[in-house]
């Protein structure tokens, strides 16, 4: 019997080791697994690599992992935002490593990892500082940059509804990076607002098929 539901957030993040590469879904404040992040913070693993579009802001979410100095490196596209004080502080101190890339390259590198591809050629970044040192190729007169797949040990994602097989449906623009991250990690853990019965999700509304998901946990209201 397949049942990916776990009883608590603590159980959901069990086994995440220090030094792990952790993808965290969301964009700005949309589609972020805030409760899983809080559970990860309390879990105590450190020396983490956080792979997420932004680097947290204010005193919530990824910013709390930075504040507690659990993160060694951030892989993202846009670390600055209103209230991104913890990232900026650590960056100025030289206490955090930053790997920056264009957002489409970021998404596609994770999709490539999930899709079993060895990388792809993108026109984005060609001729810029972000392509320095990378293999390039001209195809039909256009310059492209070779980008490798981007994997992680764990993905923490957030959906609106999920069932025990791990099928997920999202709320409005809360989908963003969650589906590609679900594909790209060895273990994908989904925080959902509601766990529903098998068959309750309209099959057409399932944006992440359960095959990409390992654990499903309901929100506990901890943040």
């Amino acid at each position: 019997m397949i049942d990916k539901r776990v009883a608590s957030l603590r159980e959901a993040i069990a086994g995440i080791k220090s030094g792990a590469a952790v993808m965290i879904g969301g964009f700005g404040s949309s589609g972020i697994p805030f409760e899983l992040i809080e559970a990860l913070r309390l879990h105590g693993a450190d020396d983490l690599t956080v792979i997420s579009n932004n680097a947290g802001s204010h005193e919530i979410g990824i910013a709390t992992l930075l504040r507690d100095r659990l993160v060694r490196k951030v892989v993202c596209t846009y670390p600055r935002s209103q209230g991104s004080v913890w990232f900026e502080k650590l960056y100025e101190e030289g206490a955090i490593e930053l790997e920056l890339m264009p957002q489409g390259t970021f998404a596609e590198r994770m999709r490539a990892a999930g899709a079993g591809l060895g990388g792809f050629f993108t026109p984005t970044g060609y001729g810029t500082k972000l392509a320095e040192g990378k293999e390039t190729r001209e195809i039909d007169g256009v310059g492209y940059v070779l980008e490798p797949p981007l994997k992680a040990d764990v993905a923490l994602i957030k959906a609106h509804k999920g069932d025990k097989w791990g099928n997920l449906a999202y709320n409005t623009a809360g989908r963003n990076f969650n589906p590609v991250m679900a594909m790209a990690a060895d273990m994908t853990i989904a925080e959902v607002e509601h766990i529903v019965e098998l068959g309750e999700l309209d099959p057409e509304s399932v944006a992440t098929p359960g095959i990409f998901v390992d654990r499903v946990v309901a929100q506990e209201g901890i943040v």
Partner: peptide
């Protein structure tokens, strides 16, 4: 160089 760089979707939009 002191200020952290941020690129977001600017490069993808500009080429695409």
């Amino acid at each position: 160089e002191k200020y952290p760089p941020a690129v977001g979707g600017a490069m993808d939009l500009s080429v695409g």
